[in-house]
Design a protein around this nucleic acid. Sequence first.
RNA 1: GCUCAUAUAGCUCAGUGGUAGAGCACUUGCUUGGUAAGUAAGAGGUCACCGGUUCAAGUCCGGUUAUGAGCUCCA
Length: 647
Amino acid sequence: MSKEITITLPDGTQKQAQAGITGIEIAELIGSGLAKAAIAFEANGEQRDLSDSVSEDSNISIFTIDSDEGLEIMRHTIAAQVLARAIKNLYPKAKLAIGPIIEDGFYYDFLSDEPVSIDDLPAIEQEMKKIVGTKAEINKTTHSKKDAVKSFNDLDEPYKVQIIEDSEQLSGFQIYSQGETGFIDLCRGPHLPSLDKAGSFKLTKISGAYWKGDSSNEMLTRIYGTAWKNEKDLKKYLTHLEEAEKRDHRKLARVMDLFHLQEEAPGMVFWHPKGWSMYVALQNYIRRKQTENGYDEINTPLVVDRKLWEASGHWDKYREKMFITEIDEEHANEKRVNALKPMNCPCHVQVYNQGLKSYRDLPIRLAEFGSCHRYEASGTMHGLMRVRGFTQDDGHIFCTEDQIESETAGFISLLSDIYTELGFTTFDIKLCTRPETRVGSDEVWDKAELALESAIKKLKIPYTIETGEGAFYGPKLDFVLTDAIGREWQCGTFQSDFNLPDRLGAEYVGEDGEKHKPVIMHRAILGSFERFIGILIENYSGKMPLWLAPTQLVLMTVTEEVIDYAAELETVFNEINIRVELDSRNEKIGYKIREHSNAKVPLMAVIGKEEKSNESISIRSLSKNDTNTYSIDEAKDFLLKNSDFPS
RNA sequence: GCUCAUAUAGCUCAGUGGUAGAGCACUUGCUUGGUAAGUAAGAGGUCACCGGUUCAAGUCCGGUUAUGAGCUCCA
């Protein structure tokens, strides 16, 4: 005789049931509609298959496809049961690895002896649809480690065997199968009870991925897909992807004539006049913010003798990413080996080291728009987002240990201001704590971590802790901002360093008259101008705020006889430093509007007979699609008021 | 760096071994037109680079470089 158990549902209602009741029976207990829609359940926080039983008092949630959990379980089944089986059907020699869910979808990794390309995806997708069409039931059996290893050894699935062998558990390995098909897969589960509950899916891309994410392991084939509860949601997602593609900064850069890259200088940007004007506007804005916040701007050499890099540790730790230069032997009197700087910190310490510093001088905040070069692996380059030559809004704060906390607070407040003013309302902070391999004493680490953490706490900004992700010389805060379409970008960073001052001999004279080592806080807000401009372009879809727009106002003539008036206006706006362009071409006004709209010029003025005779100007805005008529003085006021830096 | 793919006119792309194409952009002519494409004509290419196969290569094969999607890394 089995005992009675109490089942508590999410809304608090309780039901009595016999111990051993299964998930699907619980769903039926609640309602037959729910039982039909149910795909899995959760018992005391643990996700289970509907066929699993419950033998003690439990908090139970039944999942349907309408919940996030249900959607994820469905995606998981599409990956591990449907895609995996389709791969085995089409490529019987393939060795299955893993098939987890990711944001909006899933992937499956497998080893294939024949290359699989994107052209093969439609056939695989077809096979998946066939498999789903069988509406096969998914069954589960549980095995001991030994049995599970044997099952997958028999099937010659070495990755599955390795997963089981690497596992610490000795039993409870779940193997899922589909009816009598002979297909089995190792899985933590849960899965849909049968394939007729699968939603709409699409395979999206294919690539290579290292086994266990380790670049020293062999590369597997990875197929990505997305899955949604119905066709409508799938379409919506695919449309969203297309929208994201339209704001690709590489595409917009061509339309807006901002910059280009070319084969002779991979990963290095050729800025065009319009792109450079954005860059300069952003740099001037940052320069002003930094000056207001107690930074002194400096500039240091790009090409520096290897001796300095040896002293700083870069020659040892960072050399494979450094561009090394040698002077042509025929013309050089002395043979020197130099490196293009990959970071600015060693040079900043050189500036600090000039002249004896007193504790009264600290903190010293040195800022540089530091041009750095790093030989990035060829496959990692991506438009402006990942380049080999870039400029950081770099800064190094030389301070005492006691000043870390207040400097942290000051930095976060500056960063927060800047992100907000640039249009990013949300950003996350990650506190990265001491890694396994590190330098410095635990006392100093305690102090550094505590200082960083208490400073954020005071600002009441939420943050997460990334244990062990800090730099080897100190803990750091990473700042991740979210753009207009929800993508995340790591930009700002704030790192404390107790190592470099020692290596490069930075000192100050303390109150006690003795020499002490300062702490260096490495910091950047934008990270790199190149990447940040890429992010801004995509965030705004190229429709830049007025102060950043390369061309702020374009004057478009309707007929030839107003060109003289338009040219007068051009002079007027030039005099107040508005970036203005005159389009007096022999084209219709609609044509001009279309062209400048595509080029994302924020303000367009139509200049016709009416404006000329009234001495007025009609300004049409790109973002609002509205038109206002101003007198010339009103227009000047309006433009001056709206084209300044944000604040 | 690794996997797969791509490289044809300024841009977007078509071109399955036999005399290089389209649309847009550009130049010129006509048109002077009021809020997202007026019209006609013209010019424009060593088909990324190096090699191979073939009577013949933009097309097939190999290599190099760059680019794209990812992986690993990262500002």
